[in-house]
């Protein structure tokens, strides 16, 4: 999803790929990405989490944490 949003090759998107480092992933790109993730996973991040994750891996962590909450 990160690769698609920023139009970079998927190999560039490691868990360490991050805001400011990946081409296109700036503060506005970040908003687009978070919107895309919300749509894909049909979830809604709380306001204080939108600017939380700065790396691809951290977005996955956040998603996992939110899904655990849902499953309880």
């Amino acid at each position: 999803m990160v690769a698609r949003t920023f139009k970079v090759s998927p190999e560039m998107v490691t868990p360490e790929a991050s805001l400011g480092q990946l081409p296109g992933w700036d503060s506005f790109g970040h908003l687009t990405l978070m919107m895309e993730v919300e749509r894909e996973f049909a979830i809604r991040f709380p306001t204080d989490k939108i600017n939380g994750p700065k790396k691809a891996g951290e977005i996955c962590d956040l998603l996992r944490a939110m899904q655990t909450v849902d499953n309880r």
Binding site: F28, L31, R39, R44, T47, I50, N51
Partner: peptide, 16 residues
């Protein structure tokens, strides 16, 4: 409103 408060973005995803 979330995106408005974090980024002054007045339109949501669908509106964009």
């Amino acid at each position: 409103p979330r995106f408005y408060y974090v980024a002054k973005m007045r339109l949501g995803r669908q509106a964009l």
